[in-house]
Amino acid sequence: MATDERLLKVGVLGCGPIAQAAHFESAVKARNAELYAICDVAEDLLERMAWTFAPAKTFRDYDEMLADPALDAVIVATSDAFHVAAATAALQAGKHVLCEKPLGVAVEEVEGLRRVVEESGCILQVGHMKRFDAGLQSAKTFIDEEMGELLAFKGWYCDSTHRYHLTDAVQPHIVKSALAKRPAGNPKADLQRYYMLAHGSHLLDTARYLGGEIVEVEARLRERFGAYCWFADVAFASGALGHLDLTVAVRMDWHEGFQIYGENGSVLGKTYNPWLYKTSDVDIFHESSGTTTRILGADGHFYRRQLEGFADACLGRAPMTGADIDDGITSVRGMIAIAQSARSGRAVKLAEVSGAL
Rank of each mutant, 00 (worst) to 15 (best):
H243D: 08
Y164E: 12
S341I: 10
A90Y: 03
D159K: 10
V282Q: 02
R251F: 11
I75M: 07
V332K: 06
Q137C: 01
A85K: 06
D245V: 08
P69V: 09
P17L: 07
A70F: 08
R114E: 11
I284Y: 02
N186M: 11
V215R: 13
L46D: 13
Y277W: 15
T279S: 15
L124D: 05
M65C: 06
E223P: 04
L179N: 08
G239D: 02
Y303V: 10
A237K: 13
D281S: 09
A27P: 02
S341R: 00
V217K: 01
D253P: 13
D253H: 13
G11T: 12
F59R: 15
E109C: 03
A87S: 06
N264C: 05
L296D: 08
A298F: 11
K29L: 03
A189F: 08
S266F: 11
G148Y: 03
E263H: 02
F53C: 04
W230R: 04
A22T: 05
S354N: 10
A347K: 09
I143L: 10
F225G: 06
A235T: 15
L151A: 11
T291H: 15
A85R: 08
L98T: 09
L7I: 09
D324A: 14
S331F: 13
Q192C: 10
E25A: 11
